[in-house]
Amino acid sequence: MWRTGRFALAVAALVALAAVGAALLAPAQGESRFLDPADTGLSGSAALAQLLRQRGVTVDRVDSVASAVAKGRDRLLLVTSTTHLSWDDLDRLAALTGDRVVVGTVAGLDRLAPGANPQGQVRERSREPDCGLPAARAAGSVHIGGYTFSGANGCYPADKGAALVSFQQPGGTTTVVGSGTFMTNGHLAEDGNAALALSLLSTEKAVTWLVDPPRPPQNLAGPGGRPLSELVPPNVPWAALSAVLAVLVAAFWRGRRLGPVVTEKLPVIVRAAETVEGRGRLYRSGRARDRAADVLRAGAIDRLTPLLGLGYGAGQQEVVAALAARTGRNPHELGSALYGPPPADDAALVALAGYLDSIERNVSEH
């Protein structure tokens, strides 16, 4: 039963490991770029960019501050990340006039949106606008959260601050959202996400969509090549892990286990009389008359106690009194035989054994 069950369990585990290994070792399809208008993955925003173009809004994707500045002023600037920007780059972006939408607590938020004060972070979920901002009121419930801020026109309130704040600056309206997940391809169709995103990004006729620049190439380890860690394919660690798990499953499947107790036949059958005689000879050779007498007395008491109707652990006085009443013998003689001092010689030990045997026979007969 157990062998059949563990075989099925091992086969199921191997199938699961094969599926996991196939998923992990499958060739990469390219990393999805978060809020990239050219990315059609779940984290990209190609769907939102297409909807904006259908509404007559020009969407220009740029990956550098120089390109964003070259697009000119009086355009809506969407900033999704400032990880690779310097303070000078942030100042150049802040100098651009027009509406501005900033996603999250990017570095340099005090330059791009000085009216937004970060307060904390909350879980992303469907939230009601609960504010007077026309774009939020028209969109209604939106899947939003992330970072929260305090400031004018706070919408989608949370425990600390609001997930969206909007305020006027000399160059135009600045809006800060705690997370841009609602603008991605994977969440655009939920709740009022699309309505809010379109309302925020269509206030101007053109959008300058700033994304992270391409990753710089890895530095070479010396003039002749790259380090060994860069030459190892990224899927090799997962392959090694799958191999280790397969070995463990095979060991669990084929490993030995403790089964039920097996009764084996003894090579030689020893009669009880021979065992008693052998123990007697040991006592005799060691002159252990006291140990032999104790064994004889303990055995006699254990056998007499239930015959006399006494409970286990009955005391000396109870046993002697019951024996005297049953056999009619002298209580002192009985007490000396059962609880007296050890015999002085072998003859006294033999006499004690005969007396104890006579007592047992006498009790059994009565």
Rank of each mutant, 00 (worst) to 15 (best):
A324E: 09
T181P: 02
R3E: 12
T184R: 09
R33K: 13
A344E: 14
R137N: 04
P157Q: 14
F182M: 03
G146P: 01
T58K: 11
E365W: 07
P237G: 02
A152R: 10
S336P: 08
T105L: 06
A158N: 09
Y355A: 15
E277F: 06
P267L: 13
A163F: 06
G192P: 01
P213E: 10
A322F: 03
S126R: 14
A38C: 00
R33I: 14
G340E: 08
L42T: 14
L25G: 11
S202K: 10
Y339T: 06
A10I: 00
L109C: 03
L200P: 11
H187I: 07
N362E: 13
V295N: 13
A162F: 10
Q29K: 14
G145W: 03
A325Q: 10
A163P: 02
R137E: 10
Y147Q: 11
L266F: 08
S81K: 04
D159W: 13
R279Q: 09
E230S: 04
Y355N: 12
L48N: 07
Q29H: 12
A344C: 09
G311N: 11
N219Y: 07
V320C: 05
H332Q: 14
A95G: 07
H366S: 13
L78N: 01
L338H: 09
S45H: 11
V20R: 13
R111G: 12
A13M: 01
P306E: 04
A23P: 06
A28Q: 11
P214D: 12
V62E: 06
L164H: 02
F182I: 06
G354N: 15
R281P: 07
V207G: 09
G98M: 04
G328C: 09
G255W: 01
T305L: 10
T203C: 07
T263N: 10
A347I: 03
P267R: 13
H366R: 15
G178Q: 13
A46P: 15
R92T: 08
A22L: 07
D91Q: 08
G146Y: 04
T105S: 12
I269R: 10
H84Q: 04
V268N: 10
A337F: 15
V59M: 06
K71H: 09
D130E: 15
G222S: 01
L93K: 05
A243R: 02
A194D: 14
G115D: 01
A347C: 07
P213T: 00
G309D: 06
V268D: 06
Q50H: 12
V319K: 12
K160I: 11
E204F: 00
R92H: 07
A13K: 03
G280W: 12
V79F: 06
I301C: 03
A10N: 09
D88T: 08
G72P: 04
V207H: 10
I301L: 14
V57M: 11
A250E: 00
P227M: 06
V57Q: 00
A353L: 02
Q169G: 04
R111W: 06
E128C: 08
N193K: 14
A22S: 10
L282R: 06
I269K: 03
N185P: 05
A136H: 05
L96T: 02
V232A: 03
S126C: 06
